[in-house]
Amino acid sequence: MRGLGRAFAGALIFALPMLMTMEMWRLGFYMQPLRLALLLVLTVPVLVGLSRFGGMRPTAHLRDDLADALVVMLIAALAAAFTLYLFGILTPGMSPREVVGKIALQTVPGSFGAMLARSQLGGEPEGEREKQAPTYWGELFLMGAGALFLSFNMAPTEEMVLIAYKMSAWQSVGLAVVSLGLMHAFVYALDFRGGSARPAEIPAWSVFARLTLVGYAIVLSVSLFTLWVFSRTDGAGLQEIISASIVLGFPGAIGAASARLLL
């Protein structure tokens, strides 16, 4: 029961910025329904994966992770419905499509937050629960999830496309290089708690290529996917799409790096 309360709190903490973003309310009704459905479907395996690497409780079986993922989505939906109602954003006179869309969209960040609440705000002290060291694929997954979470925060806003308009091609290239550098530095150079020391026998370029470079490719793909889901790529030229992906990839890269530190 306390776990459910914690999940509710987590859903609120992580989803509040989006619950209070105008574009998110609008996307609730003008977003393409099939893309919203796809987003919801993809959320389930991501939540199951997050549950494996932290989640609400140490789980024995994959089906327990699935149960947690579903519970967390319900809690996130309730938290979103409750908050949006209090804000006066769900009112009578709205079509079911609008109400369902608004709540369903907010369920995605909310359920991420609820799932992370256990690993970040969990009651028991760190270290009591030995964390499984993620495998290489696990690390890639965590980077993708971190990138998805942070880019989800930014992608709905008008500013992403606006920044992409304002940047010259050189500035875009510069931003991509900076994102890569920060991603690498966050995990290996700055020595945060949870950071990784590069084992001496593995050369630096290998770690950079296998983790940071691959990670950034994942970040860019996640950015592109998020932009597409929110219909930001529709009718846009290739240069604009790439530029917007790099802009969104900047927070995504930070999110990917932090996910490796935090989870």
């Binding site: 479907v41 140490p58 789980t59 024995a60 519970v71 989505m73 869309g101």
Partner: peptide, 28 residues
């Protein structure tokens, strides 16, 4: 750490959540 398994109550909640998710998806 002791691995927790899912209690029946949680399975009921999970089932309800799954139904709600399926309903939302079908609606969309």
């Amino acid at each position: 750490p002791a691995l927790e398994s899912t209690s029946p109550v949680e399975w009921v909640i999970a089932g309800l959540s799954g139904l709600l998710l399926a309903a939302t998806l079908s609606y969309m």
